[in-house]
Simulated scan of single mutants.
Amino acid sequence: MRLSKWSVLMILFVSAALAAGMATGVAAEDKYPSKSITYLVTFDPGGQSDREARRQQPLLEKNLGQKVVVDYKVGGGGALGWSELVRSQPNGYLMAGINIPHIILQPLQQQTGYTTEQIVPVAIFQRTPLALAVLKTAPYKDIKEFLAAAKAKPGDISIGGSGTFSGHHVATLRLQKLAGTKFNYVPFTGAAPQVTAFLGGHVNAIFGNSDDLVKHADSIRVLAVADNNRFFGFKETPTLIESGIDMVESIDRGIGLPPKTPENVVARLEAAFLQIAKDPTIQEQMKKEGFVPLAMNHKESKAHIEKMTAIYKEIVKEFKK
């Protein structure tokens, strides 16, 4: 079929327009970021995720040259926010704080609206070892007395935590299995309300984040730390391992993007977050507050999540036996 001169011209025009559009798209991608970025916090204001986002916000704006807006999507132990993240456009203009093992455990246990593999980790920048704590007014002077009381009345002692199928939840499940007793786990929508309820006497104990326990050291008694080594904020407190409970639990925090986010966008944000994470002043601030500073890049963060996923799959299998 012979094409008219008009048809040929139209084909050439459309081809040129498409090529120009593609070139413009590539150019826009190369210029990332060109507008404000939303930093989604999936837990209550005042918690660790929120406080770290606020610390990073002005430094990110300086590095990226664009406004960074901290917003909230709270619920389901972080699942509501992470579900929104994986459904968003993969253009780098919505990123969310991520918590490990939450993003691993939740999809293993229930329908969450996202999978671990969908979240693209940019960097992991801090860790909080978990520790079992009671108020100073509590009758338990050490971990042995606490476990003895729990065994005497299984299910009577309540332990508060942040979220369901979270690090705090799995720590409680693991402790009761290893100790041969049962606790009443009480989930909260974040660490801030968890600690408030605990200090108000609404739960008997918490598996608390290390920074919260450092902040409230005058009001609480830390019975044992769920880490390989004693925590620098509570050097006199034994680890659970020292106490005969072979258990290590922590919360690692980082930043994640939607699936199929372009590599150059991941790399740009990775560089910005690592610049903050490696800053000696920021690291010193974190340590004083009870955090363990980390600076894992995209590749290291992805490998860490894959490693922890394999570990937690085995742990979950044990719970189901």
Rank of each mutant, 00 (worst) to 15 (best):
Q106L: 02
N229S: 13
A133Y: 08
R221F: 03
F207A: 04
H202A: 12
N229D: 14
A224R: 12
G201P: 05
Q106V: 03
Q126L: 12
H216G: 00
S158H: 07
F165P: 00
Q118P: 04
F165G: 00
A217C: 01
V122H: 10
A226R: 06
I119H: 04
G97S: 09
I104Y: 03
T137I: 00
E117R: 14
V170W: 12
G113E: 05
F207L: 14
P107V: 09
I124L: 15
S166D: 06
T172I: 10
A138S: 15
F146V: 07
N229Y: 13
A192P: 01
V186N: 02
L135P: 00
V203D: 05
P154Q: 08
V222N: 02
L108E: 08
A192N: 08
T116L: 10
A96P: 00
F231L: 14
H102K: 02
Q110G: 03
A191T: 15
S158W: 05
V203Y: 10
P129L: 01
G155M: 06
V195H: 06
S219A: 13
Q110D: 11
G167F: 12
I119M: 06
S158C: 09
A226I: 08
A224M: 05
G167P: 03
A150D: 09
T189C: 02
V186T: 10
T115K: 13
G155P: 01
A226N: 11
A133W: 11
V170S: 11
G163W: 12
H102I: 03
Q106I: 07
V225E: 01
G155V: 06
Q176Y: 07
L175A: 06
I159F: 12
K177L: 04
V170H: 12
L178R: 03
L223Q: 09
G160I: 10
A205C: 10
Q176M: 13
Y114W: 05
A96T: 06
F183K: 01
V134F: 09
I220T: 08
F207S: 07
I100E: 12
S158G: 09
A226P: 05
K141H: 14
L132K: 11
A197G: 12
G155S: 04
Y114P: 00
T137D: 04
K141L: 03
Q109H: 14
